[in-house]
Design a protein around this nucleic acid. Structure first.
Lengths: 117, 117
DNA sequence: CTATTGAATCGATAGATGTCAATGGAGTAG
DNA sequence: CTACTCCATTGACATCTATCGATTCAATAG
């Protein structure tokens, strides 16, 4: 048994005992994990990740009509991705007349960022 | 037009011109975005995120038989999640006899972490 | 050898996801 | 009013995904 194999079964198993007792546990509770996984899932598409990247680089709010020509997808598809990000709490939007302006919700990704660091 | 609405159309549109010229671009290139989105996607499931959390908290390598009882899913399902993480490059594994030991690949999440920070 | 055990794979299935064309709704321009 | 524009929604579709039970494979124990 190599020395760096932590948390191997600590002893020979008695006959009839299946494998080992659990000795490791997640540090994050289920709710915490659920929220962070939802954030990660929202970022788990190249278009959505680039959308967030664009929005993060601008202090203000960006018109959808600026975003659509950046990607090789239809306008409804981009609208769908923006909706996914909005429902995950990553971005929010504001209507001004005909235009819709999107922006990254401050600290929306902080929980995930803190866990990753 | 509120002052914080950056990157609104800068002028009245001439007749016949659809919306505005693109003036924003992603800072990350497509390949960069594709890799980070793949990482985020791998973390985009509560079980997988908790798996990574457990593995990160242990310097050594953790036996699959320790991981299975932590989650309310079957052994094949957990094996599937470990495979997803492995194929995303987040974790790797080592066989020792009957056991399989998993560990987080060092710096596997660094690119995503750097972007989020 | 055979029996057992840990883990991966297979097959099936229900549900989620990404995409587009078509449509709808709200605001603006004439 | 009508016509146009931006954006969201709908409906449809193919693909992907999470899950399980059953099976398979490899290694150990007898």
């Amino acid at each position: 048994m190599p020395a760096d194999l932590a948390l191997a079964p600590k002893q020979k198993r008695p006959a009839g005992v299946r494998c080992c007792e659990p000795v490791v546990y997640p540090d994050v509770d289920r709710e915490h994990a659920r929220r962070m996984a939802a954030l990660a899932k929202a970022l788990g598409d190249p278009i959505r990740l680039q959308l967030v990247d664009v929005l993060r680089k601008h202090a203000g709010k960006v018109c959808v009509c600026e975003l659509v020509p950046l990607f090789d997808v239809s306008q409804p598809t981009l609208s769908h991705h923006l909706k996914v990000l909005r429902e995950a709490g990553v971005v929010d939007s504001e209507r001004v007349g005909l235009w819709a302006f999107y922006y990254v919700v401050p600290d929306a990704l902080e929980e995930l960022n803190a866990w990753l660091s």
